[in-house]
Amino acid sequence: MGAVPSRAAAALDALAAMPGIWRGFGRLRPDAEPTGNAQLDAALAGGWPAGALSQVVGSETGLGFSLLLPLLARMTQAGRPAALVAPPYIPYAPALRDAGVALEHLLWITPKDRLDALWATEQMLRSGLFGTVALWSPPLDASVERRLQLAAETGRSVGIVSHAHAGPANSVAAVRLQVSAAPDGLQVEVLRCRGARPGAQLRYPLPRAA
């Protein structure tokens, strides 16, 4: 009597573990990369989705970079390279190092124009060699976004696109976060998340608060 349900449960678990199976809200995705913040993990059904594109919409240029720090630190420490493409300012090495990022596995890509930035991002996402690739760019066309989404899917990478303004509403990104400045860190709102309910709001602390 006891063996049958447990076998059935194992079969169900195996089924649920398949990436293509949608399991409703409130469950963790098997391909999620933890964000390093329990509240954010909960809001994103486990973390940043691997093999997909996530959008970080900041209220100001470059705002929201700190959300990526734990992900960058974990990936680079594990020897999986990460890349920052066309960031608006200089990613400051001492702060990155202090946050635990293994700088030897981090590439800083500064293309001359937008086209090169998109090309480089696509190449790196598709290669499957990078754990995560973060691009700073004006909002993307739906067709460009789909290309990057496809590239991330092919390479099983975490693709992150940061904009200073909200892009078109028909985005294909799996996750979309709105980030603004708050007195003690960042105010984060989940505008969309595949596999989780949107609308969650949370405070994200300052990195190693001064």
């Binding site: 470059g62 970079f65 700190s66 720090l69 960031p87 608006p88 300012y89 200089i90 990613p91 400051y92 001492p94 702060a95 990155l96 202090d98 946050a99 990195p207 190693r208 608060a209 001064a210």
Partner: peptide
């Protein structure tokens, strides 16, 4: 502590 972004 150091900031994440440095202005060029």
């Amino acid at each position: 502590p150091r900031p994440l972004w440095l202005l060029p």
